[in-house]
């Protein structure tokens, strides 16, 4: 699989990155190389191997529903570039831009 500039533009949009034409060109080539390398795995016969979600031998790591102290608000906000009224402050965004849940 090769990466063309349209695919780079799509990925860049998802990542909220603005790329110059020159960068798009360069990343298309680099990403194609990376994918080509990873594609060598496709040559393996995995027919008999069940899908693996995690290689850790862990199951059902759960915690009891017990409350512990949270961070003091000052500490929670300490690394924020901007804050006001005890809240993180960011440039204006419209509700319509996203949000999931």
């Amino acid at each position: 699989m090769t990466f063309d500039r349209a695919m780079v533009a799509h990925i860049a949009e998802l990542a909220k990155l603005q790329l110059s034409d020159e960068e798009s060109e360069r990343f298309a080539a680099q990403l194609s190389d990376i994918l080509a390398y990873a594609e060598r795995l496709q040559a393996l016969d995995t027919e008999a191997i069940p899908p693996t979600a995690s290689v850790l031998p862990l199951r059902n790591v759960l915690r009891p529903d017990v409350v512990e102290p949270s961070l003091p608000r000052g500490e929670a906000l300490a690394n924020a570039p901007d804050s006001a009224d005890g809240q993180f402050r960011v440039d204006a965004i419209l509700d319509s831009e996203g949000g999931a849940a």
């Binding site: 929670a76 006001a84 009224d85 809240q87 993180f88 402050r89 960011v90 440039d91 204006a92 965004i93 419209l94 509700d95 949000g99 999931a100 849940a101």
Partner: peptide, 19 residues
Amino acid sequence: LEEDTGKLTHTDGHSLVDL
């Protein structure tokens, strides 16, 4: 199952985030 998101309040030119 999933996790809920924070709450945004929109003010003049900014948005405030309560997590």
